[in-house]
Design a protein around this nucleic acid. Structure first.
Length: 418
RNA sequence: CGGGGAGUGGCGCAGUCUGGUAGCGCACGCGGUUUGGGACCGCGGGGUCGCAGGUUCGAAUCCUGUCUCCCCGACCA
């Protein structure tokens, strides 16, 4: 991507009406645009980050044999009435609307009920189970108060996965497998070391559900942590959990966290309410066991922005950065332009994402400042100096000094095949 | 929904108390000098002060209502 073609601009100043770090940086760097409180548009650079996160999640969901689909944002009232969750007393974050003939509709805040309904024509036999499906969907929730930038919006992207099983044992095994897949997701996103599988309030079937909580000052949750035993407990279930686990409260450290994922064992309660059953091997009608697994994609993006940024701006891990390389061309001398254009083409063809700062009118200092603000992992400078010395000036976003590499060394650094 | 703060060119702000029809920096356009950590000089375009009423000869400024944004709280399947 050439910066001369990018319509967004960075700003010298952070927006005055934002106080959360993720919103300030993402807006200042031109990654997102706030449409209204809790509602953000994802601009080209921001969308790259979202897509990179989604790709990692996709790969890990594939590792637990889940298939991707996409359900609808408009939902039927009747579907939700089956479990009583159409009622505003039960679910207070509904956005609702009407067709022109006055038929009431709901705007998707979750797809738990609709997916059970959707499976009715497909799941009849034990041979159809187990089954796991997931999607990336924009969830719409009429929150009383949006806050913390993109970390708590009224409109946000969520990966939601649902699994269906012939037995509680099979669901339990899959649930455990999913926990491992989720851990790999957060590791790959660069926040694994600070992310804990946390006991949280359960449901109809199990004593606890599990949340994935990442240590983050901008988070809304408080958990109690035992680092050596790797135990984490949401404060909302602290008393029960201590009893259950046989540990003392004073062994635990209290930390502020953001919930980046949640997995939930419904048992057979949801499918029973919805009337979805299957015929077992012995010919009897049996209950389907269901699990629900979420990852807040855009919230994770906010958490990464919060945790990994510094005084100069964003600092993306390579796996999610909008590009791996920020190629800064200094000046417009023919040889410099030629060298920079060639490197851009070569890296791009090798599959290295490059943000090419080919702007003629922008001075060096501004290019460096933008590279830092945007948080691109590697900055490569092409100038008269580098053309003369036949080298590339390379600096990692987190490094203090640049180093000069020849082409072989650069290719090695970026993993480019010669 | 309760409490607090704030709405003035694209962005950041001053002006409001002590009414006299709008100013600064950045950004933008043109010309010139510059060119390795957000350059400099000159010229120029762009807002009627969130919105609606009211008071007044006259309102960004005073009064009333209303909308929006941020923060704290409540809420969070």
């Amino acid at each position: 991507m050439r910066l001369s073609q990018l319509f967004t601009k960075t700003s010298k100043t952070a927006p005055a009406d934002e106080t959360s770090k993720n919103a300030m940086l993402l807006i200042q760097a031109g990654f997102v645009h706030k449409e209204m409180a809790g509602v953000y548009a994802y601009l080209p650079l921001g969308l790259k980050v979202v897509e990179n996160i989604k790709q990692i999640v996709r790969e890990e969901m594939a590792s637990v044999d889940s298939n991707e689909l996409i359900m609808t944002s408009l939902q039927r009232r009747e579907t939700w009435e089956k479990t009583g969750r159409w009622s505003p007393e039960v679910v207070d974050i509904w956005f609702k609307t009407k067709l022109q003939d006055d038929t009431e509709l709901g705007l998707a805040w979750s797809h738990e009920e609709p997916i059970v309904e959707m499976l009715r024509p497909f799941v009849h036999s034990y041979k159809d189970l187990p089954l796991s499906l997931y999607q990336f969907q924009t969830k719409l929730r009429n929150e009383l108060r949006a806050k913390s930038g993109i970390m708590r919006g009224r409109e946000f992207v969520m990966k939601d996965m649902y699994s269906f099983h012939a037995s509680a044992e099979d669901l339990a095994a899959y649930y455990d497998k999913t926990i491992e897949a989720y851990k790999r997701v957060y590791d790959r996103l660069g926040i694994g070391a600070d992310t804990y599988v946390t006991f949280a309030s359960g449901g109809a079937f199990t004593k606890f559900s599990h949340e994935f909580q990442t240590i983050c000052d901008a988070g809304e949750d408080v958990i109690y942590l035992h680092r050596e035993k790797n135990i984490a407990i949401n404060e909302e279930v602290i008393d029960d959990a201590i009893k259950e686990l046989g540990i003392q409260r004073d062994e635990l450290e209290q930390v502020k966290t953001a919930e980046v994922g949640n997995i939930f064992n419904f048992g057979a309660s949801k499918t029973e309410e919805m009337g979805l059953k299957f015929t077992a091997e012995d010919g009897t009608m049996s209950q389907i066991h269901m699990g629900s697994y979420g990852i807040g994609v855009t919230r994770v993006m906010g958490v990464i922005a919060e945790k990994l940024s510094d005084e100069r701006g964003l600092v993306w891990p390579e796996a999610v950065a909008p590009a791996r390389v920020y190629l800064a061309r200094l000046g417009t001398d023919t040889e410099v332009v030629k060298s920079a254009d060639e490197l851009y083409d070569r890296l791009t063809k090798s599959g290295v994402g490059v943000l090419y700062d080919d702007r003629d009118e922008v001075r060096p200092g501004e290019k460096f400042a933008d590279a830092d603000l945007m948080g691109i992992p590697y900055r490569i400078v092409i100038s008269n100096k580098t053309v003369t010395s036949n080298s590339y000036e390379v600096k990692h976003r987190t490094a203090a000094e640049a180093e000069h590499l020849n082409q072989t060394q650069l290719d090695h650094l970026l993993g480019v095949e010669a």
